[in-house]
């Protein structure tokens, strides 16, 4: 079979046409997203179990989270999802410079999120509102307040790891956009990065009310 004609460079040898390749990549990404949801699913389960066991404590403990910072972070992440979507749109219409601007904005917003999270964490560490064995704070009424912070730090920590992972991938997309890897015909990697980023955003949308808005 002659591969030289009419096969664009981005098309891998085992696919018959770009549409097949694109569909395959997208399906793969959706399945991967499902695994991520199940990963967090375990934590949601742990949350449910311990909130059911200690309802008053959860209510009292959640007041010690900073609602303002949490709200700001929610807005920051939603905005970053918008800029990510705009980056995809810009690639689709072949505007490289715009794509780069939107990708950098997404990165910047992700960084803002992490910085705010850093201030939240350090405040908690300062007060001794720490997971399990390291919990030294005394101002929360109810049974086992350390468990609330175990769950808070595990959930938000795992989410932060995903934010960092997303930033690495977006940086990769910046590099590839610079190198002109993408065009109006081929933009699947950026699209998939977008899917992943929306997932990370969506998980936060669930974490925020569960942790900051108890009661």
């Amino acid at each position: 079979m002659n591969h030289s004609q009419s096969r664009p460079a981005y098309l891998a040898h085992h696919f018959s046409d770009p549409a097949q390749q694109r569909d395959a990549s997208k399906l793969g990404m959706w399945i991967f997203i499902m695994t991520e949801i199940l990963l967090f699913g375990g934590l949601f389960l742990a949350y449910t179990v311990f909130r059911t066991l200690n309802p008053d404590m959860f209510y009292n403990a959640h007041k010690h989270l900073d609602l303002t910072l949490g709200t700001v972070n929610t807005i920051v992440l939603i905005t970053s999802s918008v800029t990510m979507a705009l980056a995809i749109r810009s690639t689709q219409v072949g505007k490289k410079k715009q794509t780069l601007i939107f990708l950098f904005s997404t990165l910047a917003l992700a960084a803002v999120f992490l910085v705010i999270k850093y201030f939240e964490y350090s405040h908690k560490i300062h007060l001794g509102q720490l997971p399990g064995r390291f919990y030294t704070y005394t101002g929360i009424e109810g049974t086992n307040p350390h468990i609330f912070f175990s769950i808070y730090f595990t959930m938000t920590g795992l989410h932060a790891v995903h934010i960092i992972g997303g930033m690495v991938v977006i940086t990769l997309m910046v590099v590839r956009t610079f190198k002109n890897h993408f065009s109006a015909e081929y933009y699947t990697p950026i699209e998939l990065t977008g899917l992943y980023w929306h997932l990370v955003d969506l998980i936060w949308i669930y974490l925020f009310p569960l942790l900051y808005l108890v009661g």
Partner: peptide, 10 residues
């Protein structure tokens, strides 16, 4: 020691 599997810690 997050305590979620430890009965001594609830």
């Amino acid at each position: 020691g997050i305590g979620i599997f430890d009965p001594a810690m609830g």
